[in-house]
Design a binder for these strands. Structure first.
Lengths: 202, 202, 202, 202
DNA sequence: CATGAATGAGAATTCATTCAT
DNA sequence: AATGAATGAATTCTCATTCAT
């Protein structure tokens, strides 16, 4: 897990772009080397196999993802604010770097390879448990409804986020993800809110 | 869109299995022919290219999907019952034929190829508009909450469904999708319900 | 161990030629396909890997070698005649098909690969035990000297045979192997003979 | 033929080890540099090409071999003693440094390259002519039998030596070469001895 | 309807070697 | 004396596809 060199970051970025453009099948050593402007063998100085590149890629985004969650979770704001911050941060991240959307929610890509599939699963699980922690905090604090399993609230949030990002990507980034994301958050906020939940006759 | 022959169905089924086992990269003519027990050239009697196989595959499932929706939507039951029927039907379908889950929500697989990507998008859109119709019916009938955009309710339902199926697949079908799906529906039903929604002070 | 097809025999023969010309390093799929006049992928119809080709090659010669030994050993001539027949048959075989000499006594070639190294060892061992059987027969019959371990007589015979063939090959087949082999046999025959051996004062 | 530097000797030794472990195909610049613990380009400071390394290697062993023969031949002991000394010295040398056995009798390794093949042939020829000189001395002195061509006696000795060493290597040094070598010498000594040879009716 | 044989294009990777530092 | 980065050529092997039978 050594820190990545410049070239390694460059290779990972190019890989993400290639995947975003044409799926994992476009990610060939040839395409990659062409994209970076070096020869094919030169790639092997920086990653000793193609699998290593993908491992590096997933590791990098796992770290990034964790960082986002950590930053938000660490504070002691109300759960609702945390949740909002996380969703907005994600939409922001994808909007800034669209190709990322082709990799992060595309578990199928790595199905081929046990090691990679495991890494993908970890990323997904990590996100889920961060969300769960926040939701539980919100439920405990009375911010969020407690008439439904917290896991289902998480599933609804994650599912809606993932679906919107996927649709955005399939539309070739054809709508304003930040804006649509913000309005989606509004609805999600209402849905999970304790106000008006069954049993709430405040 | 001629009806599929037996052999064609067999090929499509084998294709789905291969994709489910090891991703799209396992779907090679060689693997396919071996799985079916015929020679490689023989495949070309039934589909004139690999792309045609995938087109057939997607077409087949598009039809199946439409059929499910059509059956449910056509009736004049309350929206809530229709929604439930649709979700249950989907979970049922996947539980009966797990490999399907590797194909139906895996848009990335077909990113490679414009024609196929288009087909995938259509399937997704179709499902979405059926759901939207039902949700709108529910809102109009006062069954479903009207304080949120119907599109967002649809996004929440679809997103949660897709997420659960994806997790099921990634867990290698490691939990009882039918049961988990049913409890998920309970929560979704509550979430979309008008009872207790903001503004509902009935 | 299925019988070899025509093409397979052709491939094996071409392999032997390539090895004879420039060592194992010349045996590349490219050179091989060029030598035969087909494309590189076409080779894979007939052997599913390069290793399989070498396995086929060794298996083929193991069979041939066994056949020669079997033919001679089976008869009930005196040991001396059998020994002569075997040596002559070997020189004959190499003279007829010189490239064989580059493969049969070149254990180093296959050192790379455990499976192949094993096969080579078997061939060598087989030859040795056939020779040993004959020598023992000769000793018992009083034809061959019994003042030395039979194993050493075998070593002397095999060693001299191998050395002569190796020199012939390194000289680029620059002398008449049949003739030189015949005279070598004369000497070997005398060496192993019981007449004049220590203890023989007949 | 400048004397070798320390590094050069180190490189040659590492080369021999690599060849012994996995054949000539294991001798790559990468493996070599890794074995020594320097970078690949660094090798080129010491030998300007891979071929030069192999030339150095063969040159080194040619010198060593000549030294052994020279030491023994120079003395004026009886031929039998000289012969024994040479064989024992060889077995000793291999036993002390087993990887050598993978290189010295493995002409095939260098078949690839004209220059190297020539060097190998020289080493072989040198050994042979030293042996021949001794044998002729022995024949003249009446120590060795004169009823067979001296060349054949040499072939028998060299052949048996080479065969035993080869078998020792293929058995992964699985027997005591020194001891087996000594008993082999006993037999060879008897075989070449004039006592009991045809015509000897002492 | 099916196959055995074949192929051009391209896959990942390794080779010996060079060069600027 | 040594290295990190790079490369052209070659390696084994797989891909989707075609064609004569």
């Amino acid at each position: 897990m050594a820190a990545l060199t410049m070239r390694q970051k460059e290779i990972i970025e190019a890989s993400v772009h290639l995947i975003a453009e044409g799926g994992i099948q476009q990610l060939t050593i040839k395409n990659l080397s062409r994209a970076i402007g070096i020869s094919e063998p030169a790639l092997y100085r920086h990653f000793h196999s193609k699998q290593a590149i993908l491992r590096g890629l997933l590791g990098f985004f796992a770290d990034e993802s964790r960082t986002v969650f950590e930053r938000v979770t660490g504070s002691d704001r109300p759960a609702r604010e945390k949740l909002q911050a996380i969703l907005i941060a994600h939409f922001e991240q994808f909007a800034k770097y669209p190709p990322l959307s082709a990799v992060l929610f595309s578990e199928e890509i790595f199905q081929n390879d046990g090691v990679l599939a495991q890494k993908v699963l970890e990323i997904m699980d990590t996100g889920q448990s961060y969300l769960l922690k926040i939701v539980l905090q919100g439920v405990t604090a009375g911010e969020f409804r407690d008439d439904l399993p917290a896991e289902h609230l998480v599933a609804v949030i994650m599912g809606a986020l993932r679906l919107m990002v996927t649709k955005w990507r399939l539309s070739k980034y054809g709508f304003d993800l930040r804006r649509e994301g913000a309005t989606l958050w509004n609805s999600l906020g209402v849905l999970v809110s304790s106000i008006g939940a069954a049993g709430d006759r405040g």
